[in-house]
């Protein structure tokens, strides 16, 4: 039984903001299905009442004072942007 369909792969690609061709969708469906099938071996383990580990260090929220601090200059930051105008990042139109 396949774990992920080609339609689901296209849906996931859209969620991840990736454009994939039909040919790529076929390739990724096969590969992701293999990987997910492999990952299902974890179901052999009973994990009832096992706490999930998100992080290995015993850290709680790390807080600091909320103080303004000098960081990068706007002009420098804009130099790395693909497009900018009037001191702001410029992007294609958002509204259709």
């Amino acid at each position: 039984m396949s774990r992920i369909s080609k339609e689901e792969v296209k849906h996931v690609a859209n969620l991840a903001r990736l454009a994939i061709s039909e040919k790529e969708a076929d390739m990724f469906t096969k590969q992701l299905d293999d990987i997910i099938t492999y990952a299902e071996q974890l179901n052999e383990l009973d994990t009832t009442d096992v706490e999930p580990t998100t992080h290995v260090l015993d850290l709680k929220n790390v807080m600091r004072k909320d103080e303004p601090r000098k960081w990068l200059e706007k002009e420098d930051v804009l130099k790395n942007a693909p497009d900018h105008k009037d001191g702001q990042f410029k992007v294609p139109s958002i509204l259709e």
Binding site: I4, E8, V9, V12, A13, L15, A16, L18, I20, E24, F28, Q31, L32, I35, I36
Partner: peptide, 9 residues
């Protein structure tokens, strides 16, 4: 791409 899609899934 493969890992981003696996993670998103």
């Amino acid at each position: 791409k493969r890992r981003i899609m696996l993670g998103t899934f």
